[in-house]
Design a binder for these strands. Structure first.
Lengths: 392, 392
DNA sequence: TTCTGCCCGTGAACCGATTCACCGAGGAAT
DNA sequence: ATTCCTCGGTGAATCGGTTCACGGGCAGAA
């Protein structure tokens, strides 16, 4: 296995934009101005310039100004690679999220950034799109760049690569998934409880067969939400057969569309639908409507994540709300606190979700029509104390 | 001005999560395994290990395997900083987008990634949130890391810093904004035309006063869309006074809420509303409804971007569609092609938008109620050939 | 047998910043 | 006057890869 990705065969690509880069991209332009250029220009030594940059107090005012002027005149930008190579440190954190197009994750990312910026760390963002290989590629990139740590929403069930990463000195915090290993921190929301709430709600409305559009079992959230759904059905004395499961590859609107299509062709359709997330629900509702089915009369729908537009859909969507921003904040906090040789020990934070009931499940201010004061302030919320943190 | 961000005063922060990092975060763990460790372990020289990594064909099969085994046994990861320092090259591109939470930009990002991955480049993503300082910080970070180039949706009107960046050898491509300078590539959509379409549509429906929730004039898109709106009114023989403008700081749902609030208190409200983007429209519609106004009867609303959920809102939103994914693809393509000393010259690509008419402007299948086959397939599309590319 | 190539592999130089032992000068203390 | 500090500044060593001039060994040709 070649260690560096092979770039040789990009030319045989089927896409319209045929990739192929010039033989030698390297060494662009004349040469970056270096610290020694600045030193020469200012008539001082290398070390002095470095001191001006990093410990200005150790340099006399006049020298400092002279060096500063030289820096500006040459528009010198220190070479991050060299700095990092020598210093070994870096103020960057990487995050590999499942799907950057999902508002849930962008809100989490926002939370991460907000926490990191408190300590002047910066975030490098990447989206794995549920692809294990992509995730690995980005993790490797981050590690090569020497990030302080990574925040990951794993795309696969196997976490060994993350443990190895950690053993090599890279901080790892699992995002939106409780860590199965004690010494890797994690920040999650109780997905089992959230899904149970959602399905319990549907059952309480009289539904006896519940469709469930879920993602691959390699994604922990999917596993947990399924478990929660089953638990709720079990509590109600309904067997597992009451859950009509469909597995789709992508947790987005296209997945929802595919899921509903599959659900509708298969014999007796359920009367209610629980979707693994709101994007899936979005696609599901679009497709249901295209089939002439009305929501919630022909099919009640519940989503998950309560993304910002859930309350504003044609039929406002009942969904499970999670403390997204805080999730990111806390994850970044754990990462920073755990860093360094004397870092804090791993922690596992779990938040409690809450159910927000709207018209799509037919329980809210019923018969809502367009133009009504649906959603917004009128949401009915169910669940424990919002955003409860639990440590184990 | 200190060159490195000052981290000393993070402790006096008002946030709940008080930031403050341990004095010496640097030098984590024992020491990363280096190429010389591998060489020693495999009983070969440094250069040979490097050759195995970069030009495997120059190494005999037996040696190569021995080195590979050593690499795996020590779980060696090459130090990206050292590699880059010496080689000067890097296969990373940075992007600084206006708002990562806006689906428009995440779709653009997706397009960028898709194009980059053709040549095995990777993308580092960052969001400026319209803040010039944040943008500058990320650009600096990227430059220090020696990225091949950056894709930027500028947060401010002043582009000098981007020109300087380019003069230092970093490729720059403007995203979603036509470059005012010939030798900096750009990929954009004709915002003037798009906005003109939108407002022309409203005028054709009989509206004579159009509200316009816009962002700060430092953002080019805001300037262009305003110009388009004015042009359409002018064409219709209506003066500029027919445009009731409100400027909001943030181009998201909160901004829309603030905009509508301001619009409603100020004397005679317009009968139609053009929002600078769909997120703003989302917040605007939410707020209009909270005030008991119905859409489109009391107020017609048109957005911009046609994000994926626009067709699925309580009242499906009329919006201006742009070829988002392609926008990103082409921008990344220009960046890669322009790289290297023999790179292609700068290009300016401009796409044409199209108007998608839905119920929110009251022109689509009218009187749509919840549960109807609104949106989706029934969209009426206006505009030239979709996604026309123009070079100048 | 000697020469010419070729194939593998070697190790030193180098990229650009950080760090630290060291030094000269000037002031204070003895 | 001598010693001792402190302050400001110096420059060599170092981080971990990449590259390249060089050399040893071996096969084929003269």
């Amino acid at each position: 296995m070649a260690t560096t990705p092979d770039r040789a065969d990009a030319s045989s690509d089927p896409a319209r934009l045929t990739g192929s880069r010039p033989a030698d991209t390297r060494r662009r332009g004349p040469r970056r101005t270096s610290i020694s250029d600045v030193a020469r220009h200012a008539g001082v030594s290398l070390g002095t310039v470095s001191n001006v940059l990093n410990r200005p107090d150790r340099v006399s005012e006049t020298t400092r100004e002279r060096v500063q002027r030289a820096i500006e005149e040459l528009s010198f930008i220190p070479n991050g690679s060299a700095r990092q190579l020598r210093a070994g440190t870096i103020s960057t954190v990487g995050a590999v999220l499942l799907d950057i197009a999902n508002p849930f994750f962008t809100e989490v990312a926002r939370g991460i950034e907000d926490r990191l910026s408190l300590d002047d760390y910066t975030l490098m963002l990447a989206s794995s799109d549920g692809d294990v290989a992509r995730e690995a590629r980005y993790l490797r990139l981050f590690e090569e760049h020497g990030v302080l740590g990574v925040l990951v929403t794993p795309a696969g069930a196997d976490l060994d690569h993350l443990l190895e990463l950690r053993s090599r000195g890279v901080q790892v915090v699992l995002l939106d998934q409780t860590s199965p290993v004690a010494d890797v921190s994690s920040v999650a929301v109780d997905d089992v409880a959230g899904a149970a709430m959602a399905v319990r709600h549907l059952v309480s409305l009289g539904h006896r067969r519940v469709g469930f559009i879920n993602g691959p079992a390699t994604i922990q959230q999917c596993v947990d939400r399924r478990a929660g759904a089953l638990r709720a059905l079990d509590e109600a004395g309904l067997g597992a057969s009451a859950l009509v499961e469909v597995e789709v590859p992508a947790l987005n609107a296209d997945g929802g569309e595919a899921g509903v299509t599959e659900l509708l062709v298969g014999g007796t359709a359920p009367t209610a639908l629980f979707c693994v997330n709101d994007l899936t629900a979005l696609g599901a509702m679009r497709t249901l409507r295209a089939h002439g089915l009305s929501i919630p009369d022909d099919m009640a729908v519940v989503g998950y994540d309560d993304v910002n537009f859930a309350s504003m859909l044609t039929t406002p969507l009942t969904s499970v709300r999670q403390p997204t921003h805080r999730l990111g904040e806390v994850a970044a906090d754990l990462l920073l606190r755990g860093a360094g040789p004397d870092g804090a020990p791993a922690q596992h934070v779990q938040f409690q979700p809450e159910l927000v009931v709207r018209a799509s499940s037919g329980a809210a201010p019923s018969g809502t029509i367009a133009g009504d004061v649906a959603g917004a302030e009128g949401d009915e919320r169910v669940g424990g104390v919002p955003a409860t943190e639990t440590l184990r």
